[in-house]
């Protein structure tokens, strides 16, 4: 019987592989490094604090607005399919959004309709700052909000790859399904006109999109069906972004507490 047979298995393994000397040192090193890293990780704690973000416009100066109905962009490919009152609806969503902010007063929808009786807001109005300022003085406001919108859809076939269990082959096999993806895009351009100085103080576009998957049948129905709800939802999202930018609000931001 050899002398090796009496040795514990671990010792034999160590001797065979020739790392009996380095093993404890490297293990200690790893443990030490792990402990150090753990310690470093706990040195600072990240917390999220509310931070007040100021409005991007002078809210002391521009405290009351008149929101005019939004005009349709002439380049829009689906002009004829759009409902007539979309522009007015976008404006009323914006009015509601601004009225919720304590810093702003907004001319009501009824009052706006009354003053604009007989007039139709067209895209050409956006460049006629003088006319818009004049309207603003009728409304007795500091600023007028106008804009236009473009609503597009894009449909293209897509293929979804997945796996299904094949009973015949007794294993998962690759599977795919074809569908139509219909994407709706809304581009909303919003301008704020300073009535007193006849200047554009805000001119930004907000683009929002949403997509839905269709089979061939549902796709045909969706082409013929109403799109108001999608448009309303996209408008709401775009307007929320605009309202957030021009009104003071809170955002969460990270800070580090040191232990």
């Amino acid at each position: 019987m050899s002398a090796e047979k009496g040795l514990p298995k671990m010792k034999m393994f160590k001797q065979r592989n020739g790392w009996s000397e380095t093993f404890p040192v490297s293990a200690l090193g790893i443990v030490f490094a792990a402990l150090t890293l753990c310690g470093c990780g706990r040195a600072a704690t990240r917390v999220s604090i509310p931070v007040k973000v100021q409005s991007e416009i002078d809210i002391n100066r521009y405290s009351n607005f008149a929101v005019l109905p939004f005009a349709r962009e002439k380049r829009s490919s689906r002009d004829e399919a759009m409902p007539q009152r979309v522009g007015e609806e976008i404006a009323s969503i914006l009015r509601r959004g601004l009225a919720r902010q304590k810093h702003f007063d907004v001319v009501s929808t009824q009052e706006t309709s009354r003053i604009l009786t007989g007039e139709t807001v067209a895209e050409e109005w956006l460049t006629d700052i003088e006319h818009l300022s004049e309207l603003g003085s009728y409304f007795d406001v500091k600023a007028v909000i106008v804009g236009n919108y473009r609503f597009d859809t894009d449909s293209r076939p897509r293929r979804y790859y997945g796996e299904r269990y094949s009973i015949q082959r007794q294993r998962y096999v690759m599977n795919y399904q074809d569908y139509m993806q219909k994407t709706y895009f809304l581009t909303l351009r919003v301008l704020i006109i300073d009535v007193e100085n006849e200047q554009v103080i805000w001119d930004e576009s907000y683009r929002r999109s949403t997509a839905e998957a269709h089979t061939l049948g549902s796709f045909i129905f969706s082409q013929a069906g109403p799109q108001e709800n999608t448009l309303r939802e996209l408008s709401r999202r775009a307007i929320a972004e605009f309202t957030r930018r021009i009104s003071p609000h809170y955002e969460r931001e990270d800070r580090y507490l040191v232990q």
Binding site: V47, I49, P50, V51, K52, R255, Y256, L257, V258, Q259
Partner: peptide, 16 residues
Amino acid sequence: NAKALNNLGVAYEALG
């Protein structure tokens, strides 16, 4: 104590 001062700063900032 710099740690406490830093943390105090964070707390003050959180309260505006």
